[in-house]
Amino acid sequence: MLDVLIPHYNDAAALDMTLQSIEAQSWKGKLRAIVMDDGSDKEELAHAEKVILNSALKIEFMKSPENRGRPVTRNKLLAAADARFIAWLDAGDVWYKHKLQDQFNTIYQCVYAGEDLNRIWVTCNYDWQWMGRKRRKVTQTTSGDQLKNLFVGDRLRAYLWTLLGTRESFNLVGGFDERLPRLQDLDYFISFVRGGGRLVNTGQSEPLCCYFKSDVGRNAQEIRDCYDTIFNKHGPALGRYGHGFRRRSHAKADFVAARFAENNKRPLMALKFWLQAFGSDPRYALYRTKTSLQKG
């Protein structure tokens, strides 16, 4: 009835934590986890196999002989799924106890309201936990123009592990874009909404899962390039909101890339992205600089 799709790479301890959060769900329907290892080192792979053997969940374990990247792994997971419903969770992130139950309840409400289940994804509010900082709740706002909100990325964020939907709804989007080593979630969400899909929140104000966020080890330039690929791919949709919006989106992407560069101790690269942001949208860049300074 439900397949939970989990990509894993070189972090068996995190996988263990993730699987435990699935085991602890209050929803007790038929569930299978499909874990795909994306070419982990020998030692981590052996550890992951042990974690899976010790789990009480029904798990299908797939292995890739080499590291092919997350979009390829996610496509393989999607192809392996055959349940009516699908949920995603990355090794290292966790669901809270009532996540699935609340999301399924929303699905039933949608059926009652006459919605086409293959055109909706149920998302939820979540906690955002930066390493070494306090956990904070992030609200997913599904009202308003969802496409615009996805491009902006403040009110509605594209995170697969918040979702529950039918397998058909995910297949309708097609696969994950394998040109995108990062931000493939964003591309996937935009494609879904552009194709007539709609995101629905559970109506629960509490967060239902937790994202453990770290920028460390991530390539800022790669992230900025992925933004460009997405902006080009969805150019007509982005253009619908005017030049100003396009410039703002580029500036925002520069700020995200600058943050990654900064957190990976690449100050010159960070500066480059800041300057790019000033070039794209000086007003927005000034505003961001001002708020940054105020926050210290």
Partner: peptide
């Protein structure tokens, strides 16, 4: 003329397992 049975049927199917 509404979908309460459709919703209930889906929910019954989704929620039930061999153990419940």
């Amino acid at each position: 003329a509404d979908r309460r049975l459709e919703a209930a049927s889906l929910a019954l199917e989704v929620e039930s397992s061999g153990d419940h």
